[in-house]
């Protein structure tokens, strides 16, 4: 499957989960394909990084569900920040644990999961729809009933996958990618390399098999598909390029790097690095 085929299955108005975390192992080639499409008016659920910044800058997000948006080495995501400051998107701002519990509720087909986080904080004020639930046992504790974060579709990026959708991460952290896939009607996995199934566990332990094929609707081979976020151990974050992204106007950045297809993007990045090296 190609990235454009994945996007052809998405529709405006959908609730879309995006895997990775901050500026780490984001399915950026799928996000770039989304930017080439006309899909818009999205509710995006994400541990926010440049995926959110780009989609917000392009005006594709109606509602964001997130606990943060960051570029990690650059603490504040500049384009997300600008979008918030001009009131360009709605925000369901929740705590990181609430976010995790919301995905778990959806993955388990439960309407909510009880969580202690959120009480006493302004998360309850800015999300007036959030309800609490009281323990039926002797403790009688009141907790937040974190609603399931059900997704119409999920996009994630991993190191390896087979053609059937068995996905493997080789870095230190799975983030929440398997949960995004389990919480979605249809999940799409991009990977650095598609390999034979037997290849997946030839040299690595089966615990690295994060994503199971029954949760996956399509696989895309996309080398350097997480660029400019990290995809350890295949590559680290492209800090110089991320800095360029963060310090250039959106129009200029999109004009130079996002006008063509993924191949054009990757060569524009190589050209940019060569120019930067000669300056």
């Amino acid at each position: 499957m190609s990235a454009d085929e994945v996007v052809s299955r998405l529709e405006s108005g959908m609730t879309l989960g995006i895997g990775g975390w901050g500026s780490r192992r984001k399915p950026m080639s799928l996000v770039r394909a989304l930017l080439r499409s006309r899909v818009t008016d999205l509710t995006v659920v994400s541990c926010g990084g440049p995926d959110i910044g780009m989609l917000a800058a392009a005006g594709r997000i109606r509602t964001l569900v997130a606990a943060f948006a960051t570029l990690d080495s650059i603490p504040l995501e500049p384009h997300y920040r600008a979008a918030r400051e001009r009131g360009a998107l709605e925000l369901m701002e929740i705590d990181e644990a609430m976010f995790l519990w919301g995905l778990r509720a959806a993955a388990n087909r439960l309407p909510f999961m009880p969580v202690r986080a959120g009480l006493g904080s302004d998360v309850m004020r800015v999300n007036p729809g959030l309800r609490t639930v009281t323990s039926p046992y002797e403790d009688g504790e009141t907790l937040v009933a974190m609603p399931a974060l059900r997704l119409d579709a999920a996009l994630v990026h991993v190191s390896r996958a087979d053609g059937r959708g068995n996905g493997q991460y080789l870095g230190p952290d799975p983030y929440f990618d398997d949960l995004f896939c389990e919480a979605a009607e249809a999940a799409y996995v991009s990977c650095e390399r598609i390999v034979d199934t037997a290849e997946l566990t030839k040299e690595t332990a089966p615990q690295t098999l994060l994503i199971k094929r029954h949760t996956v609707a399509g696989v895309v081979e996309s080398p350097r598909g997480a660029h400019f976020t990290s995809c350890v151990p295949d590559y680290g974050r492209d800090e110089a390029f991320q800095k360029q992204y963060a310090t250039t106007s959106w129009a200029e950045f999109a004009g130079r790097f996002l006008d063509g297809d993924e191949h054009a993007y990757q060569s524009a990045v190589r050209d940019w690095h060569e120019e930067a090296a000669h300056e």
Partner: peptide, 21 residues
């Protein structure tokens, strides 16, 4: 104002879960 902030910062991150636990 949270609805349209003068300066957007990080977000709540894990501060609610941390302080309650």
């Amino acid at each position: 104002d949270w609805a349209r902030p003068a300066r957007q910062l990080l977000g709540v991150r894990g501060a609610p879960v941390n302080t309650l636990n």
